[in-house]
Design a protein around this nucleic acid. Sequence first.
DNA 1: ATGTGC
Length: 383
Amino acid sequence: MSTAGTQAPLTSPPATVRIIASPQSWVEGEAVRQLEAVARLPGMRHAVGLPDLHPGKGAPVGAAFTSEGILYPYLVGSDIGCGMGLWDVGMLARKAKAERWAAKLDVEGTWSGDAEGFLAEEGVKASGFEAALGTVGGGNHFAEVQRVDAVHDAEGFAALGLAADRLLLLVHSGSRGLGEAILRAHVDRHAAGGLLEDSDDARAYLTRHDHAVAWARANRALVARRVLDGIGAPARRVLDVCHNSVTPRRDAGGTRWLHRKGAAPSDEGPVVIPGSRGALSYLVVPLGDGTGSAYSLAHGAGRKWTRTAARERMKERFTAESLTRTPFKSHVVCENKDLLFEEAPPAYKPIDRVVTDLVEAGLVRVVATLAPVLTYKTRSREE
DNA sequence: ATGTGC
């Protein structure tokens, strides 16, 4: 094993496949088939499905993959750098004006400030997509003002500088059109094929990928700033993690390419695992050495219903107006009706089960649960 | 997912 040649990685034994989900966490068969198909790609070593595993476009979402000698941009997908940022808001929860904020908060369209200057402060170069910097995007993206529901680990909670009576802001967004353009340029040349790690194409992709990851992080920071300007409060970034990326990582066997597709890192400190807009989010601390889970965790609840099914089922049972409030009495800003139905809470799996699976697998400790106060999706009727 | 595809 000490003399692995350059050809060895692509012809060695099949990857291991592990799905970290209890029988109570229902996982769609198609998602499992997708995971197994990815595991058969040349150079693949480990394929890990997390408890929010669900089918994606070709490759599953809620999964992490490690490979040797070759990397696969299409496994990361088009929203390179997508992730979650959490801010500690300098305002008491009892001072929240959710109804007033829901009526007027507007984070739509190009930011009126100096986007390139903002990027420079974040240490990120401009990309040409700055018209979208500071916008939430579509799909499952959101900005959510939250309150602390319960503290389960007072020491861990205090260590993050948090206080139980203060608001928080969670932002889930990505690299908007930038990542999409990067993947499209790759797919035009290589389709779903991988890139040999020592190739010029791999180096070029990784340079653009790393830029999109940094730009996406800055995007979340600007979304947070726009929301905070809207509610008139200061804030401090507590954490920011990316769940769509490919990064080199050394482990016992040598350098591996760690692909995360809807999988939060377990090696970068605490993360937030959100449920639907009508459910709690979990602030957790990763446990263990990460080797059995590809250094990854679930990134959210995961869809239970397709968007099409969710639209049909929810329209039969609920009015759009009723979906702008949740069982937590929180407010939802989503003026696009299709998106309002697609993202309704029943379209997602129960987040408590997803997190319990992670706890039972020894992968996380729960620090606190966070409840929604105001979920901002979009003010626009289109998109 | 997408300054979105026919």
